[in-house]
Simulated scan of single mutants.
Amino acid sequence: MIKHFYLWICASAILLSTCGDNSHEASEQYEKAVKLFEAGQYESARNAIDSIEQLYPKAFKQIKEGMLLLCKVKQKESERNLLYIDSVLKVRRSELEAAKKAFRFEKDAKYQTEGNYVYNKLPKQEAITRSQLKVLVTENGQMQLASVYYGSAPLKHSSIRVTLPDKSKAETLAIGYDGANNYRFSNDGKYTEIVTYKDGQCSAVASLIADNTDKAITLTYLGGSRYTLVLDRLTREAVKATRDLYNLMRSVDDLSREYQLNVRTLELADKQVMQLEKQQAEK
Protein backbone atom coordinates (compact mmCIF):
# COMPACT_ATOMS: atom_id res chain seq x y z
CA MET A 1 0.00 0.00 0.00
CA ILE A 2 2.82 2.39 0.97
CA LYS A 3 4.64 1.46 -2.24
CA HIS A 4 1.58 2.26 -4.33
CA PHE A 5 1.11 5.56 -2.49
CA TYR A 6 4.75 6.48 -3.15
CA LEU A 7 4.40 5.72 -6.85
CA TRP A 8 1.24 7.86 -7.00
CA ILE A 9 3.12 10.78 -5.37
CA CYS A 10 5.94 10.52 -7.93
CA ALA A 11 3.53 10.35 -10.84
CA SER A 12 1.67 13.38 -9.55
CA ALA A 13 4.90 15.33 -9.18
CA ILE A 14 5.87 14.51 -12.77
CA LEU A 15 2.42 15.51 -14.01
CA LEU A 16 2.53 18.80 -12.14
CA SER A 17 5.97 19.59 -13.52
CA THR A 18 4.73 19.09 -17.08
CA CYS A 19 1.69 21.30 -16.42
CA GLY A 20 3.60 24.21 -14.89
CA ASP A 21 3.90 27.71 -16.22
CA ASN A 22 6.69 26.81 -18.71
CA SER A 23 8.33 30.10 -17.72
CA HIS A 24 11.60 29.25 -19.46
CA GLU A 25 9.96 28.54 -22.82
CA ALA A 26 7.66 31.55 -22.40
CA SER A 27 10.67 33.78 -21.68
CA GLU A 28 12.39 32.54 -24.82
CA GLN A 29 9.27 33.35 -26.86
CA TYR A 30 9.09 36.80 -25.28
CA GLU A 31 12.76 37.48 -26.06
CA LYS A 32 12.08 36.42 -29.64
CA ALA A 33 9.25 38.95 -29.78
CA VAL A 34 11.55 41.67 -28.39
CA LYS A 35 14.19 41.01 -31.06
CA LEU A 36 11.56 41.13 -33.80
CA PHE A 37 10.24 44.40 -32.37
CA GLU A 38 13.70 45.95 -32.24
CA ALA A 39 14.28 44.85 -35.85
CA GLY A 40 11.12 46.66 -36.92
CA GLN A 41 9.31 43.44 -37.84
CA TYR A 42 6.14 44.48 -36.07
CA GLU A 43 3.72 41.99 -37.59
CA SER A 44 6.02 39.07 -36.70
CA ALA A 45 6.47 40.55 -33.22
CA ARG A 46 2.67 40.64 -32.82
CA ASN A 47 2.43 36.96 -33.75
CA ALA A 48 5.20 36.03 -31.33
CA ILE A 49 3.48 37.96 -28.51
CA ASP A 50 0.10 36.34 -29.22
CA SER A 51 1.67 32.87 -29.13
CA ILE A 52 2.88 33.35 -25.53
CA GLU A 53 -0.65 33.27 -24.13
CA GLN A 54 -1.72 30.56 -26.56
CA LEU A 55 1.17 28.21 -25.80
CA TYR A 56 1.85 29.11 -22.16
CA PRO A 57 -1.43 30.27 -20.57
CA LYS A 58 0.04 30.06 -17.06
CA ALA A 59 3.13 32.13 -17.78
CA PHE A 60 1.54 35.21 -16.26
CA LYS A 61 4.74 37.24 -15.97
CA GLN A 62 5.65 36.83 -19.63
CA ILE A 63 2.04 37.41 -20.70
CA LYS A 64 2.00 40.75 -18.88
CA GLU A 65 5.35 41.71 -20.37
CA GLY A 66 3.93 40.77 -23.76
CA MET A 67 0.96 43.10 -23.21
CA LEU A 68 3.33 46.02 -22.68
CA LEU A 69 5.41 45.06 -25.70
CA LEU A 70 2.27 44.79 -27.82
CA CYS A 71 1.34 48.36 -26.89
CA LYS A 72 4.80 49.47 -27.94
CA VAL A 73 4.32 47.64 -31.23
CA LYS A 74 1.08 49.63 -31.76
CA GLN A 75 2.99 52.83 -31.01
CA LYS A 76 5.66 52.11 -33.60
CA GLU A 77 3.15 50.94 -36.21
CA SER A 78 1.09 54.10 -35.80
CA GLU A 79 4.18 56.33 -35.92
CA ARG A 80 5.33 54.58 -39.10
CA ASN A 81 1.85 54.82 -40.65
CA LEU A 82 1.58 58.51 -39.81
CA LEU A 83 4.89 59.29 -41.53
CA TYR A 84 3.86 57.37 -44.65
CA ILE A 85 0.32 58.75 -44.82
CA ASP A 86 1.54 62.30 -44.27
CA SER A 87 4.00 62.04 -47.17
CA VAL A 88 1.41 60.58 -49.54
CA LEU A 89 -1.24 63.05 -48.40
CA LYS A 90 1.00 66.00 -49.27
CA VAL A 91 1.47 64.62 -52.79
CA ARG A 92 -2.26 63.94 -53.28
CA ARG A 93 -3.24 67.41 -52.01
CA SER A 94 -0.77 68.99 -54.40
CA GLU A 95 -2.18 66.92 -57.28
CA LEU A 96 -5.73 67.85 -56.26
CA GLU A 97 -5.00 71.58 -56.24
CA ALA A 98 -3.37 71.29 -59.66
CA ALA A 99 -6.37 69.35 -61.02
CA LYS A 100 -8.82 71.95 -59.69
CA LYS A 101 -7.26 74.56 -61.97
CA ALA A 102 -9.05 72.91 -64.89
CA PHE A 103 -12.41 73.53 -63.18
CA ARG A 104 -14.55 76.47 -62.18
CA PHE A 105 -16.43 76.54 -58.89
CA GLU A 106 -20.11 77.31 -59.20
CA LYS A 107 -22.47 78.07 -56.34
CA ASP A 108 -25.71 79.99 -56.14
CA ALA A 109 -25.67 81.24 -52.54
CA LYS A 110 -29.40 81.89 -52.70
CA TYR A 111 -30.40 78.33 -53.61
CA GLN A 112 -27.38 76.09 -52.93
CA THR A 113 -25.75 75.01 -49.68
CA GLU A 114 -23.04 73.15 -51.59
CA GLY A 115 -21.14 74.30 -54.65
CA ASN A 116 -19.95 72.29 -57.66
CA TYR A 117 -16.76 71.90 -59.67
CA VAL A 118 -17.48 72.09 -63.40
CA TYR A 119 -14.93 71.50 -66.15
CA ASN A 120 -13.68 74.88 -67.43
CA LYS A 121 -14.05 74.10 -71.12
CA LEU A 122 -17.76 73.37 -70.76
CA PRO A 123 -19.84 76.43 -71.66
CA LYS A 124 -21.92 78.15 -69.05
CA GLN A 125 -25.59 77.64 -69.86
CA GLU A 126 -28.38 79.56 -68.20
CA ALA A 127 -31.14 77.93 -70.27
CA ILE A 128 -31.44 74.35 -71.49
CA THR A 129 -31.69 74.33 -75.28
CA ARG A 130 -30.34 70.90 -76.22
CA SER A 131 -30.12 67.29 -75.10
CA GLN A 132 -26.79 66.54 -73.43
CA LEU A 133 -24.92 64.74 -70.67
CA LYS A 134 -23.78 66.98 -67.81
CA VAL A 135 -21.06 66.10 -65.33
CA LEU A 136 -19.76 67.68 -62.12
CA VAL A 137 -18.25 67.01 -58.70
CA THR A 138 -19.75 68.60 -55.60
CA GLU A 139 -17.41 70.42 -53.24
CA ASN A 140 -17.84 67.52 -50.79
CA GLY A 141 -16.55 65.05 -53.35
CA GLN A 142 -19.63 63.45 -54.91
CA MET A 143 -19.55 62.83 -58.64
CA GLN A 144 -22.77 63.34 -60.57
CA LEU A 145 -23.95 62.78 -64.10
CA ALA A 146 -27.17 64.30 -65.39
CA SER A 147 -28.96 63.21 -68.55
CA VAL A 148 -30.70 66.22 -70.03
CA TYR A 149 -33.39 65.80 -72.69
CA TYR A 150 -34.84 68.70 -74.65
CA GLY A 151 -37.34 68.01 -77.42
CA SER A 152 -40.80 68.34 -78.91
CA ALA A 153 -42.20 65.15 -77.31
CA PRO A 154 -41.75 63.74 -73.77
CA LEU A 155 -39.55 60.70 -73.14
CA LYS A 156 -40.17 60.05 -69.43
CA HIS A 157 -36.73 58.46 -69.19
CA SER A 158 -35.25 57.21 -65.90
CA SER A 159 -31.76 55.94 -66.83
CA ILE A 160 -29.13 55.99 -69.57
CA ARG A 161 -26.84 53.59 -71.38
CA VAL A 162 -23.53 54.30 -73.10
CA THR A 163 -22.30 52.03 -75.88
CA LEU A 164 -18.93 51.75 -77.60
CA PRO A 165 -18.45 50.85 -81.28
CA ASP A 166 -17.52 47.30 -80.24
CA LYS A 167 -20.91 47.05 -78.44
CA SER A 168 -19.40 47.27 -74.94
CA LYS A 169 -21.91 49.07 -72.76
CA ALA A 170 -22.70 50.36 -69.29
CA GLU A 171 -25.89 51.63 -67.68
CA THR A 172 -26.81 53.83 -64.75
CA LEU A 173 -29.28 52.76 -62.11
CA ALA A 174 -32.87 53.72 -62.83
CA ILE A 175 -34.02 56.84 -60.95
CA GLY A 176 -37.74 56.93 -60.37
CA TYR A 177 -39.64 60.13 -61.08
CA ASP A 178 -39.59 62.21 -57.87
CA GLY A 179 -39.59 65.82 -58.99
CA ALA A 180 -36.05 66.24 -57.64
CA ASN A 181 -33.36 63.88 -58.98
CA ASN A 182 -35.75 63.07 -61.81
CA TYR A 183 -37.94 65.95 -62.90
CA ARG A 184 -39.73 67.17 -66.02
CA PHE A 185 -41.41 70.31 -67.28
CA SER A 186 -42.73 71.77 -70.52
CA ASN A 187 -42.62 75.30 -71.90
CA ASP A 188 -43.81 76.68 -75.22
CA GLY A 189 -44.36 73.20 -76.63
CA LYS A 190 -40.88 71.98 -75.64
CA TYR A 191 -40.29 69.24 -73.10
CA THR A 192 -37.34 69.16 -70.73
CA GLU A 193 -36.28 66.20 -68.58
CA ILE A 194 -33.31 66.06 -66.23
CA VAL A 195 -32.28 62.90 -64.38
CA THR A 196 -29.36 63.11 -61.95
CA TYR A 197 -27.24 60.07 -61.07
CA LYS A 198 -24.93 60.18 -58.04
CA ASP A 199 -21.68 58.31 -57.33
CA GLY A 200 -22.46 54.57 -57.37
CA GLN A 201 -25.52 55.12 -59.54
CA CYS A 202 -23.35 56.22 -62.47
CA SER A 203 -19.88 54.79 -61.75
CA ALA A 204 -19.91 52.23 -64.57
CA VAL A 205 -21.07 54.79 -67.15
CA ALA A 206 -18.51 57.38 -66.04
CA SER A 207 -15.69 54.81 -66.15
CA LEU A 208 -16.57 53.56 -69.62
CA ILE A 209 -16.62 57.11 -70.99
CA ALA A 210 -13.45 58.19 -69.14
CA ASP A 211 -11.52 55.14 -70.34
CA ASN A 212 -12.56 55.59 -73.98
CA THR A 213 -12.41 59.30 -74.73
CA ASP A 214 -10.93 58.63 -78.18
CA LYS A 215 -13.91 56.55 -79.32
CA ALA A 216 -17.39 57.37 -80.56
CA ILE A 217 -19.80 56.73 -77.70
CA THR A 218 -23.56 56.49 -78.13
CA LEU A 219 -25.80 57.72 -75.30
CA THR A 220 -29.25 56.13 -75.08
CA TYR A 221 -32.06 57.40 -72.86
CA LEU A 222 -33.97 54.50 -71.26
CA GLY A 223 -37.13 53.92 -69.26
CA GLY A 224 -39.61 55.56 -71.59
CA SER A 225 -39.44 56.39 -75.28
CA ARG A 226 -35.97 55.74 -76.68
CA TYR A 227 -33.70 58.58 -77.69
CA THR A 228 -30.03 58.46 -78.71
CA LEU A 229 -27.21 60.86 -79.38
CA VAL A 230 -23.46 60.62 -79.88
CA LEU A 231 -21.36 62.15 -77.13
CA ASP A 232 -19.14 64.92 -78.43
CA ARG A 233 -15.41 64.93 -77.68
CA LEU A 234 -15.68 67.79 -75.18
CA THR A 235 -18.23 65.89 -73.10
CA ARG A 236 -16.06 62.77 -73.12
CA GLU A 237 -13.06 64.85 -72.09
CA ALA A 238 -15.08 66.52 -69.31
CA VAL A 239 -16.22 63.17 -67.92
CA LYS A 240 -12.62 61.91 -67.78
CA ALA A 241 -11.28 65.08 -66.13
CA THR A 242 -14.16 65.08 -63.64
CA ARG A 243 -13.71 61.41 -62.83
CA ASP A 244 -10.00 62.05 -62.19
CA LEU A 245 -10.80 65.02 -59.94
CA TYR A 246 -13.36 62.93 -58.06
CA ASN A 247 -10.82 60.14 -57.50
CA LEU A 248 -8.27 62.63 -56.15
CA MET A 249 -10.83 64.18 -53.80
CA ARG A 250 -11.83 60.75 -52.55
CA SER A 251 -8.17 59.74 -52.10
CA VAL A 252 -7.46 62.85 -50.01
CA ASP A 253 -10.54 62.21 -47.87
CA ASP A 254 -9.62 58.55 -47.34
CA LEU A 255 -6.04 59.39 -46.42
CA SER A 256 -7.19 62.14 -44.03
CA ARG A 257 -9.50 59.70 -42.23
CA GLU A 258 -6.72 57.11 -42.08
CA TYR A 259 -4.35 59.72 -40.64
CA GLN A 260 -6.79 60.67 -37.89
CA LEU A 261 -7.43 57.00 -37.08
CA ASN A 262 -3.70 56.44 -36.56
CA VAL A 263 -3.46 59.59 -34.42
CA ARG A 264 -6.16 58.20 -32.12
CA THR A 265 -4.53 54.75 -32.10
CA LEU A 266 -1.19 56.28 -31.13
CA GLU A 267 -2.76 58.34 -28.35
CA LEU A 268 -4.41 55.23 -26.92
CA ALA A 269 -1.19 53.19 -27.18
CA ASP A 270 0.73 55.96 -25.39
CA LYS A 271 -1.75 55.87 -22.49
CA GLN A 272 -1.64 52.08 -22.29
CA VAL A 273 2.17 52.03 -22.23
CA MET A 274 2.24 54.60 -19.41
CA GLN A 275 -0.33 52.66 -17.39
CA LEU A 276 1.39 49.28 -17.83
CA GLU A 277 4.86 50.69 -17.08
CA LYS A 278 3.47 52.33 -13.94
CA GLN A 279 1.89 49.06 -12.81
CA GLN A 280 5.14 47.18 -13.32
CA ALA A 281 7.14 49.84 -11.47
CA GLU A 282 4.82 49.62 -8.44
CA LYS A 283 5.44 45.90 -8.03
Rank of each mutant, 00 (worst) to 15 (best):
residue 94 S to M: 14
residue 231 L to G: 03
residue 68 L to P: 00
residue 133 L to P: 08
residue 197 Y to E: 03
residue 34 V to T: 08
residue 5 F to I: 15
residue 202 C to I: 06
residue 247 N to R: 15
residue 45 A to L: 08
residue 172 T to G: 04
residue 117 Y to F: 15
residue 167 K to P: 00
residue 88 V to E: 10
residue 188 D to Y: 14
residue 204 A to T: 05
residue 5 F to K: 15
residue 265 T to Y: 04
residue 259 Y to C: 01
residue 260 Q to F: 01
residue 77 E to G: 01
residue 144 Q to I: 11
residue 16 L to W: 04
residue 200 G to M: 11
residue 195 V to H: 06
residue 34 V to G: 07
residue 228 T to A: 00
residue 101 K to T: 09
residue 225 S to N: 15
residue 241 A to E: 10
residue 172 T to L: 03
residue 29 Q to W: 11
residue 93 R to W: 06
residue 2 I to G: 12
residue 33 A to S: 07
residue 283 K to W: 14
residue 259 Y to P: 01
residue 200 G to K: 08
residue 224 G to R: 07
residue 272 Q to F: 05
residue 22 N to R: 14
residue 72 K to P: 01
residue 114 E to S: 14
residue 40 G to I: 06
residue 82 L to K: 02
residue 30 Y to D: 08
residue 204 A to Q: 06
residue 187 N to H: 14
residue 146 A to N: 02
residue 150 Y to D: 11
residue 85 I to T: 05
residue 18 T to H: 15
residue 120 N to I: 08
residue 229 L to Q: 12
residue 171 E to Y: 03
residue 46 R to S: 10
residue 62 Q to S: 11
residue 15 L to N: 10
residue 19 C to M: 15
residue 198 K to Y: 13
residue 180 A to Y: 14
residue 243 R to V: 13
residue 224 G to L: 06
residue 16 L to E: 00
residue 229 L to N: 04
residue 200 G to A: 09
residue 10 C to G: 11
residue 176 G to W: 10
residue 163 T to P: 04
residue 188 D to H: 14
residue 157 H to C: 01
residue 16 L to P: 07
residue 46 R to E: 13
residue 81 N to H: 04
residue 171 E to W: 00
residue 110 K to S: 13
residue 17 S to P: 09
residue 20 G to P: 03
residue 54 Q to R: 14
residue 56 Y to C: 05
residue 165 P to G: 01
residue 123 P to D: 02
residue 84 Y to P: 05
residue 87 S to M: 11
residue 126 E to K: 10
